[in-house]
Amino acid sequence: MKRTILVYLLRVFVASLFAMPVYWVFVIATSYHGAAYQLPPVWRPLFHWKPLVFVWTHTPWARYVFNSVFITATTIVFVVVTSAFAGYALAEIKFPGNTLYFYAMLGVMMLPQQALLVPQYVLMYHLHLLNSYAGLIIPFGASTSGIFLFRQFFLKLPVSYREVARIEGVSTLTYLRRVAIPLARPAVATTVLLTFISSWNQFQWPLIMTNSPSLQPIELALSHYMQAYQSNWRDLTSAALIALSPILIVFAFTQRHIVSAVAGGDVGQKE
């Protein structure tokens, strides 16, 4: 039994080790001015919300949050629609090139993103997509993992579901909208969550593709803020808290789903 207790203690230690930095963002953001310089460090949050309000009102965070929300929300809609469409075509429709497209879309994952940034920038320049919401959204409007997820899900739907629709004269789009996608709720949820996380956390792409402050999503704004307010830890962590909170809240409610989605678990299971 000694061993069991040891294992549990180790687990507690490891868990707090990993959670500590995130916790500290909160502690320092809501602590008194200068708490960051205390030795030994401050451990307990004081729940002073004033610095957060100050940061929110004295810099255009509302704008940045709006940008992030808008970009993320639009990207999610794009990804869900394109993934459901392509996933359905790959799973249920026979057409010349079906297999080819399956591998081509998986191949996108093999392309090293860092090596593509230069040509992508040139492309965006010529498409006049630099400094635009469209340029921050459209390239991420299709997702390999989303398509794969929907394909796996649709493969599990009975073939007769679609055959009934064909006999009844229901168009493919209506069938998708009324039957296939509503039944694929778990796939939709997973795609929404994963897209939310990756889109909200976007940093490098907006860094390169925009230079107008009014378009900045929150992560990019935060990095500029970081350079401007180098050691004002309370304001910095307050701003970081604004960027972190939506992720933390969503993660708190859906962590089991996210973890199993990432681990390739059985989220594709139909109800």
Partner: peptide, 18 residues
């Protein structure tokens, strides 16, 4: 497991600050 996984979903700039 959830807490160990948590950092992975956090935005890099926000947690870099701390």
């Amino acid at each position: 497991q959830t807490l160990v996984f948590l950092p992975h979903v956090t935005p890099v700039v926000a947690t870099s600050i701390i």
